[in-house]
């Protein structure tokens, strides 16, 4: 087990290195520069700025420097969005806000999505199943800003005299409700579909027949015998999805004006704020790698037949 984890960590380091190099080269290959805005500065200013931030050197030298600093825990400073603020500081202040909303979102998505999936599988072919299918297909196909807008319209003042929740995130519990609902809706629908498919498969297995022949009650058959066998595809999806959701949704954070990390993923690229692009990318990549490792370890817990050390070879 320890050997397996060690191997995975080593692989994670290699993966991260590749991600860093790829991002670094691609980011520099994109035309544009952080210094271009409405008023184009003079060439002399641009040259001076490039020199100051080391952008005048060849990309490979820049990368080498970046990696060297990174190993010492220095992810550089923002060069445009929050000028001269350390990237690490930006991530450590923004991430908790996104993560808090993300955790609530993913928890409600699991608590609602998985049982709904079970229900749909159990009632397959009935109107309950059809209704859930319509809702989930809608949830999966609707873009996030549509969900957010609908929620805002229905519950935050779109209807005359009916305003339960604030439109702008201000840290009060009421202001958490709509962002969490909007952020969790997609994973909830996706999970529900995934659970339904996996449950249909396991409900038709012979051990379910055995469980019924034993005289077990439906609840036990569904939640003990069928669900545990259906969990593998569900956690496979959940691992990376948790990383994505906790890092914040760009759309949801923009719509509700949440000062979270999600917005930085996109706006750092628009602004060519190279250190932030690198910082956020590495953070998300590392997060996803860790989640995937957790998922693989969970497999073993869920299904005793899975042999990690063999599968790792």
């Amino acid at each position: 087990m320890a050997k397996y984890i060690l191997k995975r960590v080593l692989m994670a380091v290699i993966t991260l290195f590749i991600v860093i190099c790829l991002t670094f080269f691609l980011m520099n290959a994109v035309p544009g520069s952080p210094w271009l805005s409405e008023k184009t500065p003079t060439q002399a200013t641009i040259d001076a700025l490039n020199e100051k931030y080391g952008l005048d050197q060849p990309v490979i030298v820049q990368l080498g420097k970046y990696l060297g600093n990174m190993l010492q825990g220095d992810f550089g400073d923002s060069i445009k969005m929050q000028k001269d603020r350390p990237v690490l500081d930006i991530i450590t202040t923004m991430f908790p806000i996104s993560a808090k909303i993300g955790i609530i979102a993913i928890v409600w998505a699991i608590l609602v999505g998985v049982p709904l999936g079970c229900l749909a599988a159990y009632k397959r072919g009935t109107w309950v199943d059809s209704l859930l299918r319509v809702i989930c297909t809608l949830g999966i196909s609707m873009p996030g800003f549509v969900v957010a807008t609908i929620l805002l319209y229905l519950l935050a003042g779109g209807i005359e005299g009916f305003k339960i929740f604030p439109t702008i995130f201000d840290g009060t519990w009421q202001s958490y409700v709509l962002p969490c609902a909007a952020l969790g809706f997609y994973p909830m629908c996706y999970l529900s579909r995934q659970t339904r498919t996996a449950m249909l498969d396991s409900i038709n297995q012979e051990y379910i027949k055995t469980a019924r022949a034993k005289g077990l009650r439906n609840r036990k058959i569904i939640f003990k015998h069928a669900l545990r066998n259906a969990l593998i595809p569900v956690i496979t999806y959940l691992g990376p999805q948790i990383a994505f959701t906790l890092c914040g949704g760009f759309v949801v954070e923009t719509v509700f004006s949440i000062p979270g990390l999600g917005r930085y993923f996109v706006s750092s690229i628009q602004n060519r704020d190279y250190p932030i692009i690198m910082g956020t990318t590495i953070f998300l990549a590392a997060f996803i790698i860790v989640m995937n490792l957790v998922v693989d370890l969970l497999y073993k817990l869920v299904d005793p037949r899975i042999n990690l050390s063999k599968g790792g070879n």
Binding site: E206, Y207, K209, T210, A211, A213, N229, D303, P304
Partner: peptide
């Protein structure tokens, strides 16, 4: 009580 044809698939693999 009832017992079935295929003992390989009739026991729940995860318990």
């Amino acid at each position: 009580a009832m017992i079935f044809q295929n003992p390989m698939t009739c026991l729940n693999p995860v318990y």
